[in-house]
Simulated scan of single mutants.
Amino acid sequence: MRTVADVAKMIDHSLLRPELTDDDVRAGCDLAARYDVASVCVKPCDVQSAAERLTGSGVAIGTVVGFPHGSSSSRIKAAEAHAAVNDGAGELDMVLNIGRLRAGEDEAVLADIRAVVESAPGIVVKVIFENAYLTDDEKIRACRLSEQAGATYVKTSTGFASGGATPADIRLMRAHVSDRVKVKAAGGVRTLDVLLKLNEAGATRFGATATAAILDELAARLA
């Protein structure tokens, strides 16, 4: 079984719910630092304060682009990404243009992803597909386009749609990107057993709000 430290460094502690206050975000950042997770994923308006609070902690600052529907123009997504990096973000989770993917407009989807990647050189970019709305063929095309655009990760879901990460989707996505591209699971990752099952399927990063419960459960099992 993996160590608590190993699993912690697979978790992006999610602080994206619209009702979260400044106090909630500060508490979430403190929890992320205490458990030494991979990153916090905060709303764009919270990037600067999170970066200040977590300086020197070893926890990366992530935020979202075109969230949650992916429907902003590519120009706006690129500007949003650039602003987030200037505020201190080192990781960006962008939602691709779901409608254009479903319509078969692959060149537009490619350009949309590439606009974000090129606006944030050297930054980890994770492309969110929102698999609840997609066929397997559309997921496969999204994998190919994300890799072609230079993304670092492909990601299952925002966590705000009707469905989230499944082992079948993780296996599909893992099979259709090269080893250079990693897979992130998000949506419904609320227990240790779910995380471990998705990890076995090929995911190496997880968006979660139940971070403390997951890691405390692993510590109890190892004890």
Score class of each variant (00 low, 15 high):
residue 103 A to K: 08
residue 110 L to P: 02
residue 129 F to T: 01
residue 86 N to E: 14
residue 132 A to P: 10
residue 94 M to S: 01
residue 118 E to N: 03
residue 129 F to H: 06
residue 133 Y to D: 09
residue 128 I to V: 07
residue 67 F to C: 01
residue 88 G to S: 07
residue 131 N to D: 15
residue 64 V to L: 09
residue 125 V to A: 09
residue 66 G to Y: 00
residue 124 V to A: 11
residue 92 L to Y: 09
residue 98 I to H: 02
residue 126 K to V: 11
residue 65 V to W: 04
residue 101 L to S: 07
residue 82 H to F: 15
residue 112 D to L: 01
residue 85 V to G: 08
residue 135 T to E: 11
residue 111 A to I: 06
residue 135 T to W: 07
residue 67 F to A: 02
residue 61 I to H: 15
residue 64 V to C: 05
residue 68 P to Q: 06
residue 108 A to F: 06
residue 60 A to Y: 10
residue 114 R to W: 01
residue 109 V to Q: 01
residue 135 T to C: 12
residue 132 A to G: 11
residue 66 G to F: 00
residue 127 V to D: 06
residue 60 A to T: 09
residue 128 I to T: 12
residue 93 D to A: 14
residue 91 E to N: 12
residue 126 K to L: 14
residue 113 I to Q: 00
residue 83 A to T: 13
residue 73 S to G: 02
residue 107 E to H: 15
residue 105 E to C: 09
residue 133 Y to C: 14
residue 92 L to T: 13
residue 93 D to H: 12
residue 85 V to A: 08
residue 69 H to V: 10
residue 111 A to Q: 02
residue 112 D to P: 00
residue 72 S to H: 09
residue 118 E to H: 05
residue 111 A to F: 01
residue 115 A to G: 00
residue 123 I to F: 14
residue 131 N to G: 14
residue 91 E to V: 06
residue 75 R to H: 04
residue 66 G to V: 00
residue 89 A to P: 06
residue 83 A to C: 13
residue 75 R to P: 10
residue 105 E to I: 13
residue 66 G to Q: 03
residue 115 A to T: 01
residue 60 A to I: 15
residue 104 G to I: 13
residue 63 T to F: 06
residue 96 L to Y: 02
residue 67 F to I: 00
residue 104 G to W: 13
residue 134 L to E: 08
residue 87 D to Q: 12
residue 78 A to C: 07
residue 112 D to R: 01
residue 63 T to Q: 12
residue 75 R to Y: 06
residue 64 V to Y: 03
residue 73 S to F: 01
residue 78 A to S: 03
residue 123 I to L: 12
residue 82 H to N: 10
residue 101 L to A: 07
residue 95 V to G: 00
residue 86 N to A: 15
residue 118 E to F: 08
residue 79 A to Y: 03
residue 102 R to E: 12
residue 68 P to T: 14
residue 131 N to T: 15
residue 65 V to T: 07
residue 81 A to P: 05
residue 118 E to K: 06
residue 118 E to T: 07
residue 98 I to R: 01
residue 70 G to K: 00
residue 70 G to T: 00
residue 89 A to R: 14
residue 84 A to C: 13
residue 97 N to Q: 04
residue 98 I to K: 04
residue 91 E to M: 05
residue 128 I to L: 07
residue 106 D to T: 05
residue 77 K to G: 00
residue 119 S to D: 04
residue 117 V to W: 02
residue 128 I to W: 04
residue 94 M to Y: 01
residue 99 G to M: 02
residue 103 A to M: 02
residue 119 S to G: 13
residue 83 A to K: 11
residue 99 G to I: 10
residue 110 L to R: 04
